[in-house]
Nucleic acid binder design. Structure first.
Length: 359
DNA sequence: GATTCGTGGTA
DNA sequence: TTACCAAGAAT
């Protein structure tokens, strides 16, 4: 019995790794087989940076940011020397801004406490800011050839189908991780991790899996069962509540008044437009004007919709020009020229565009 | 252990 | 339009 299990595992691994070599999928952060033959080693800095950017983020969205970051800051020490505001501006639009704060904290920890060299073990990596179980395992495997169990959403889906796991997510996570761990060996751990994730991303997709092209369908219980797309099982998500707010576009010549948001919480540390409180009930005109950061001739520019992970937002947009209103002082604005608006999170970019006639 | 935290693409 | 989803981490 035991012999047949290990035989299956070896055959499955062999088939998937052969498929991975055949694909030769090119990604901006990946060392190609040709490069590897030429002696190029994967750079832990680039592996780490890519893994952080890819957390809950698609490859097409992350790729231009990765290229820009690695061009501006070729090493972790270069990144560690960046000022907070510049880093946050460079991250604008990627989302989950705690990642940017932790990215900088991690770079500085590596530069200051590790001599600019990344730890080469899972435990050492896991202790760094913004590096959780997945990222520590991924960097350990891909950059340092450690036999780490790299489990992301792709791997969970692949395991749930291979073994027809009936436990719904997220309860199934420990079970799926254990199943993935049984397939890890000392042979090409980095390639194995990437092969599994590539399979999930391009073949074993959430909807419409391409089982006729799958290198491991022969071992797949869900495929045998005839309904692979129904895995992983999952518990339904609750409704997303709606919130309402008002954003204020205050101009002074070419400049727009921005505010630096508190360091933690939603959009923490980012520049943003001044806004009212975001609450459950809509704002009428009088409330919107009353909540403005300074008194002025506020004009209604409609509203924009934005969806966050855990709520939807209807944001009314009011705008005014500060010219000829030198009196009232609403406090410390960061006056930013029009082109500087690219440093804003998307929700504020939408609102600013809504007032574009004024800008 | 349940919540909080973005964004853009796709069915 | 709605719902789901993508190489998760911190609290």
């Amino acid at each position: 019995m035991k012999a047949s299990v290990s035989l299956d595992r070896a055959a499955l691994r062999s088939s998937l790794l052969a498929w991975y070599d055949r694909q030769a999928r090119t990604l901006a952060w990946r060392v190609s087989p040709d490069e590897r033959r030429a002696g190029v080693r994967s750079d832990p800095y680039r592996v780490w940076l890519s893994e952080v950017m890819l957390q809950q983020t698609t490859v097409p969205h992350a790729t231009p940011y990765f290229l820009s970051f690695t061009q501006r800051w070729p090493t972790v020490s270069d990144l560690a020397a960046v000022e907070d505001g510049d880093l946050m501006a460079a991250w604008a639009g990627l989302g989950y801004y705690a990642r940017a704060r932790n990215l900088l904290a991690c770079a500085r920890a590596v530069a200051d406490q590790h001599g600019g060299v990344f730890p080469d073990t899972e435990e050492g990596l896991r202790a760094l800011p913004g590096v959780g179980a997945y990222t520590a395992a991924a960097v350990a495997a891909i950059a340092f050839d450690r036999a780490a169990n790299v489990v992301d959403g792709n791997v969970e889906r692949v395991m749930s189908r291979l073994f027809a796991v009936e436990t719904p997510l997220p309860d199934a996570k420990p079970e799926l991780k254990a199943l993935a761990g049984d397939l890890v060996t000392d042979e090409r751990p980095g390639d194995w991790a990437q092969a599994l994730m590539d399979l999930g991303a391009t073949v074993c997709k959430p909807k419409g899996p391409l089982c006729d092209r799958c290198p491991v369908s022969a071992w797949c219980e869900a495929f045998k069962g005839g309904a692979p797309e129904t895995y992983p099982r999952k518990t339904k998500k609750g409704d997303r509540p709606r919130r309402h707010g008002v954003a204020y576009v205050l101009t002074r010549g070419d400049a727009v008044a921005l505010v630096r948001r508190p360091p933690k919480g939603l959009l923490g540390g980012m520049l943003g437009l001044p806004t009212s409180e975001w609450r459950a009930t809509p704002y009428d005109d009088a409330e919107a004007v009353a909540a403005a950061p300074i008194a002025g001739a506020w004009r209604d520019f409609g509203a924009v919709e934005h969806v966050f992970t855990h709520f939807s937002l209807t944001l009314r947009v009011f705008a005014a020009d500060k010219a000829g209103n030198g009196g009232a002082n609403g406090g410390d604005f960061v006056w930013t020229p029009r082109e500087g608006l690219s440093a804003l999170p998307s929700v504020f970019l939408k609102a600013a565009r809504a007032a574009e006639r004024l800008l």
